[in-house]
Amino acid sequence: MTEYVSHIHPVAAILVHAAIPLTIILVYALVAIWGERKIAGFIQDRLGPMRVGGWHGWAQSIADLLKLIQKEDIIPTDASRFLFKFAPFMMFAASYAAFAVIPFSSAYVGSMVNIGVFYLLAVTSLLTLSIIMAGWASNNKWSLLGGMRSAAQMVSYEVPTIASVLTVVLVAGSLNLMTVTEMQSGNDILGFLPNWFIFQNPFLIVAFIIFFISILAESHRVPFDLPESESELVAGYQTEYSGMRWAMFMLAEYADMLLLSLLGATLFFGGWNSPFGDFMAGPLWGFFWFMLKGLSLVIVMMWIRWTLPRYRVDQLMHICWSILIPLSFVNLVLTALWEVIF
C-alpha cells in the first residue's frame, strides 16, 4: 500500500497518510472508551452502559461525543487564553504525529524513516509540555499541581522506557520499526515459538516488564495516574477543561495508550507477524494481528486500572529512580554481553 500511495500526487499522498492513522485512532477511541466502561463494569460486578444504541449500549461513546460537542466552551477569566486553547490540540498532535512511524502491516507504514524509534520517543515527549501548558494556563492551583506532577513523572519514566527500548534496538540493530518487525518473522525458537523478541532471550522479558510498567506511567494509567488523580487533585490539569477541549484530552490520552501499546507489540511481540508462521499471514492478516496484540496490551492496562489503588508521588519516583532505572541499565549491559557471547 505504501508503494501504491507513493504513485499518486504527493499532496494526495500526504492526505492519505494522514487519514489512515486518524481513522484508526478515532474508531479505536470510541470503541475503547465504551470498552473500558464495559470492562470496569464486569470487574465491578455490574453491567456498564446498556441503553444507548440497543445492544449493550454500543453507541454510548458516540452519544457522549455528541453531548460534549454541544457543550458551552468555558475558559476561566484569568486563564492564559492562547495556551489554554492550544494545550489539548498540542497533546493530541503529539501522539497523533507519532503514529507516522508505526508499521501497521507489512504493506503499510506512514513513513519508513530509519530513526523511527528515536522519532517516536522524541515526539511523544511533547506530551509533557502540553500537560504543563494546560496546568499552567488554567490558572488553577490544582491544575498546576497536576501539571507539575506530570512533568516530574513523565521526565522520570522516559528514562526506563528508553533504556528498555534500547535493549531491543541493541538486539535488532536497527531503529527502523519496519526492520525490527521483519526481523521477528518465522517460527524457529524451540521449533515452534515465533521469533518474537520477547522469546529470544531472557533479558528481553525483563526489558518488556520494565517497558510495560513505564508505559503505564507514561500514559497516566492506574496505579500511576497521579497527574489526574481525581480523589486528590480533583482532575489535575484537566480541572478547568470542559466540552470539546476536554474531549481532546480524552482522545489524546487514549491515543497515547494505543500508541505505546502498539510500540510494545512491535518491539516485543513481532508487530504484524502472525504467531503461526506463514499461516494467516499477509498484509490484512498482519493488520489484524498487530491490532490484536496492541489492543490486548490496552486491555491489560484497563484491567490493572480497575484493580489497583494509586501510588503516592514520592513512591512513584522511588520506583522509577531506585528500581526501574538501575535495573533497566543493568539489563541493557547484560543483553549486550549475551549478544557478544551467543
Binding site: 460486578d45 495516574d225 480523589s231 480497575w306 484493580t307
Partner: peptide
C-alpha cells in the same frame, strides 16, 4: 477510604 486512594472496585463490591 479505598476510593480516596484510587481503588475504585472495592467500593462497589462493598456497596452491593
Amino acid at each position: 477510604f479505598g476510593l480516596d486512594l484510587g481503588a475504585f472496585s472495592p467500593f462497589l463490591y462493598l456497596f452491593t
